[in-house]
């Protein structure tokens, strides 16, 4: 596909997958290129080893970012994505592994000191643990916070809110009370892939089964017939009083305009 966008252009991806796959083939699960990004999926236990090979043998000197992603429907629900950058080759690759709540990922703080905070953030937000990280504290959330807010099953509003209490002269934590229901709009159009049924639409998917189907066998059951025709012909209300032309103007009516009809 021709590149039309004007996003940052780094060195060509050509041959990168083959060259790197060769050296990490033992641990490699899958490698592909899409949207101009090279992505390697490797075994979790070998992540530190793989990243070390990429750093030392393939000149990816900088580790710019570690991102966590939550896919609740997967067996190992989290993905940890490492963004590497090569200053000498002017190239970027992504390396990822999967993890669950109770499978720690080997730390890479031994390779890059800045991995410390990045791993802390993934731990804080998703609850992925990193084996060997010497300082795996929470980093972005409040002191004493419970839960991992960026998991997909953590509600947007959270569970607690805090305010300064004038009576107690300190900050107090309380359960979240919403003055108005949380508004989430789903604009996915019903004829383009929405996976829910709009109210009323369930009728179109075949009539629900009933024990005794209701039918009309005689004409009388429907209410139609001579009796109904007669009733329909009858006047429903008496007619109004007849209008008579007396030739005199009605009391209080304005004077007629001149015959020329005004201007």
């Amino acid at each position: 596909m021709a590149v039309l966008h004007s996003a940052p252009k780094f060195a060509s991806n050509e041959g990168v997958i083959d060259a790197i796959s060769e050296t990490i083939s033992v641990w490699l699960i899958e490698a592909h290129e899409s949207h101009g990004e090279v992505i390697f999926r490797v075994q979790r236990d070998a992540i530190a080893r793989v990243l070390q090979i990429l750093r030392d043998d393939h000149a990816y000197q900088q580790m710019m970012e570690i991102a966590g992603v939550d896919y609740p429907e997967r067996a190992e629900r989290f993905e940890v994505v490492y963004m590497l950058q090569s200053l000498t080759k002017n190239h970027r690759v992504m390396v990822k592994c999967s993890a669950s709540e109770d499978t720690p990922v080997p730390t890479v703080t031994t390779l890059w000191p800045n991995a410390g905070w990045l791993e802390r953030e993934v731990f804080d937000m998703f609850g992925v643990t990193f084996a060997g990280n010497p300082d795996l504290r929470r980093i972005l959330t409040d002191y004493g916070f419970e839960g991992h807010p960026f998991r997909k099953d953590f509600p947007m509003t959270g569970y607690t809110e805090l305010r300064y209490s004038e009576e107690e002269k300190r900050v107090v934590y309380e359960p979240v009370v919403l003055a108005q229901e949380m508004r989430t709009f789903d604009f996915l159009s019903p004829w383009e892939g929405a996976d829910y049924v709009l109210p009323g639409d369930e009728k179109s998917r075949g009539a629900p089964a009933v024990a005794e189907p209701k039918v009309t066998e005689k004409q009388g059951d429907t209410g139609a017939g001579k009796a109904a025709d007669k009733a329909a012909a009858e006047k429903v209300s008496p007619p109004g009083p007849e209008q008579k032309d007396t030739g005199k103007p009605a009391p209080g009516a304005p004077d007629p305009t001149s015959k020329e009809g005004g201007r």
Partner: peptide, 18 residues
């Protein structure tokens, strides 16, 4: 569907979006 990591030179350094 897909994933990209785009980084630009913000005044403070590399600012990226995954």
């Amino acid at each position: 569907a897909g994933e990209v990591y785009v980084a630009t030179e913000s005044p403070k350094g590399e600012f990226g979006v995954y």
